[in-house]
Design a protein around this nucleic acid. Sequence first.
DNA 1: AAGGGAGACTCAGAAAACTGGTA
DNA 2: ATACCAGTTTTCTGAGTCTCCCT
Length: 589
Amino acid sequence: MRKSKTDKEEQQQKSQAKEEEKEENKWKWWEEEHYEDGVKWRFLEHKGPLFAPEYEPLTDNVRFHYNGQPMKLSANAEEVATFFGKMLDHEYTTNAIFRANFFTDWREVMTSAERKLITNLNKCDFQEIHTYFTEKTEAKRVQSKEVKQDLKMEQEAIAQEYGYCTMDGHRERIANYKIEPPGLFRGRGSHPKMGKLKNRIQPEDVIINCSRDSKIPVPPTGHNWKEVRFDNKVTWLASWTENVQGAMKYIMLNPSSKLKGEKDWQKFEIARRLKGCVDDIRAKYSADLKSREMKSRQRAVALYFIDKLALRAGNEKEEGETADTVGCCSLRVEHIKLHNKLNGQACVVEFDFLGKDSIRYYNKVLVKKQVFKNLKHFMQNKDPSDDVFDRLNTHNLNKHLQELMEGLTAKVFRTYNASITLQHQLEQLTDSEGSEAEKLLSYNRANRAVAVLCNHQRTAPKSFDQSMKKIQAKIEAKKEQIDLTKSELKSAKMYHKVKKDKKSKLVVEKKKKMVQKLEEQLTKLEVQATDREENKQIALGTSKLNYLDPRITVAWCKKYDVPIEKVYNKTQREKFAWAIDMTEEDFVF
DNA sequence: AAGGGAGACTCAGAAAACTGGTA
DNA sequence: ATACCAGTTTTCTGAGTCTCCCT
C-alpha cells in the first residue's frame, strides 16, 4: 500500500515536472511574423489518419431473432444490426423516420436471402445484441485499475503517433486524427436522413495533404490512398466525402495550434474593427429603412436583427435534405408575429423559429417603428411559408457588408456583440470588494448574458432538480451549524467575562474564527446555488470558446486578481495561450 | 455576370470519459 | 478502503457560414 502511494506521488511529481518543462519551451507563435495571404504552411508531415477498428463478428451465443426465430446474419448485415442494437434504449430507435431510413439502408447490405426474409423491422429482435454490448461496457467498467492503466497507456501511445503532426518545424496537436467509424447517422431535430447508414471509410476514400518533401503517410497494408496532394493553401491534413449528406470531412489541427489560434485572434481583431465603425453602419442601415428600393429596405431590417438580436445570417438550404431550420435571411412569414400593442408596448415582434441544431429561438422584441412598418409591408399578401426577405440572401448581404468594412460579414456582428456585451457586463457586475466566489459569479453572469443573447441552450441535466435540492439541503445544514457555533461563541464569551484568563480568551477567538469561516462557506454555497439555478438551460461553453475575446477575460482576471485557472480549464488555457500571454490588465476590446 | 455548387473552415450540443469527493 | 455518483472535461461529428470557381 505504502509503496503504491509513493509511486503515485512520484508519478505526479514527474508529470508535473514534465508539464512545467513543456511550459518553458512553449512556442509563442503570436510573437512571430505571419505568412502572406493564402499560404497556410511551408512544411507539413504527418502519419495519416487512424482508421476505425475492423468489425468483430458476434459469437454464436448472441443471436438476432426475426419473427421469434433466431438467425445468423451475414457479416455485413450483422454489423449494421449491431449499430441499431447498441442504440436500443435511445429515443432515436422509436422514431419512425429513423427506423424507416435504417431499415432501407440495412436491407441494402443484406444478402438477397436475408432481404427476402427480413421485410418488417417490427419483427426484428435486437435484444440479445443490446444486452451483449451493455454487458461488455459493464465488464470494461469493472476491470482492474491495472488493466485500465495499461489500456490508457496504449491509447496514449497511439495518440502520440497519430495525434500530432509537424508543421513548419513545430509539433502540433491534431484535433481529430481518428476517421469517423461507421454507424447510423444521427441528425439534430427532425432530420429527414436520420438513421441512414454511415459507411465505413477506407483509405481509398481518403485524400492526404502534406508536403512534397515530407515522409508521405503510408496507407494500411493492402490499401491505397485516393490521392496525395501537396496544397499549402489549405489547413487540412486529410479529407473524405461522407456518404449520407455528401459533405466533406476533414482532419485538422487542434485549437491550440498556430494555424487555428492565429485565425481566432484575427477574428477578434475584425470584430474590434467593427466596434470602430459600428455607429456609422448603424446610422447607414437606419437610414436605409426608408430606402425607396425594396432590396435595401429588406437588407436594412435584416441587418437590424443581426445586429440587435445577434441572429445568424441564414443561408438557404436544400429542402428535404436537412432539418427545417432558419436564420435571419431565411426567416419565413410563419416565424414572425407582429403585435401593434403587446403588454402596453407598441411595435413588438414575436419570433418563434428553429435555428442552428434545431434550437428554438423564441423572443418578443420591441423594435423601431420603421422596422415594424417595413416588416408589415414585407409580409403583406404572403403565405406563411413564404420568405420574409424575398429580395435578400446571405450572398448579397455579405457583399454589401464587405463594402462597408473590409472583412465584415454577418457573423462578425455576433462576435462583436457577444464580446462587447461581456465587457460591459463585467464592468457593471464585478465588485472589487467581493470575495473570489462572488467575482466568479459575476463573471458567470456576464458570460450568461452573452449565452442568452446568442441563444446558446442545453437540455437541463436530468438530475438537475435533485442536485438543486441537495445543495439547498447543504445550505440549510450550514445555517444550522452557524447558529450552533454562534451560541457556542456566546457562551464562550460569557465564560471569558467571568474567568478572564488566557485559555478562555483563546476559546472565544477560536469560535469567532469558526463562525467567520462557516459564513464564508455559506455564501460560497449560496452563490453556487444561484449560479446553478440561473444556468439550468443555458450553455456557457459555446460563447466562451467561440465568441468572447479571451483578452477581455484575461484582463478581468488580472484586474480583479482572480487566477486564470478559475475561469479557463486546461483546454481553454491552451486554446487561449496567445491571449493569456499578451494581455495586460488595461486591455479594452 | 448572376447564380449555383463545391470546398473549407467555424461553431454547436450531446455523449463519452474522467475525476475527485463521499457514503 | 472502495464503490459510486455527480460534476467537469474531452471527444465527437453534425450544422452552420462564407468563399471561390465554374458555367
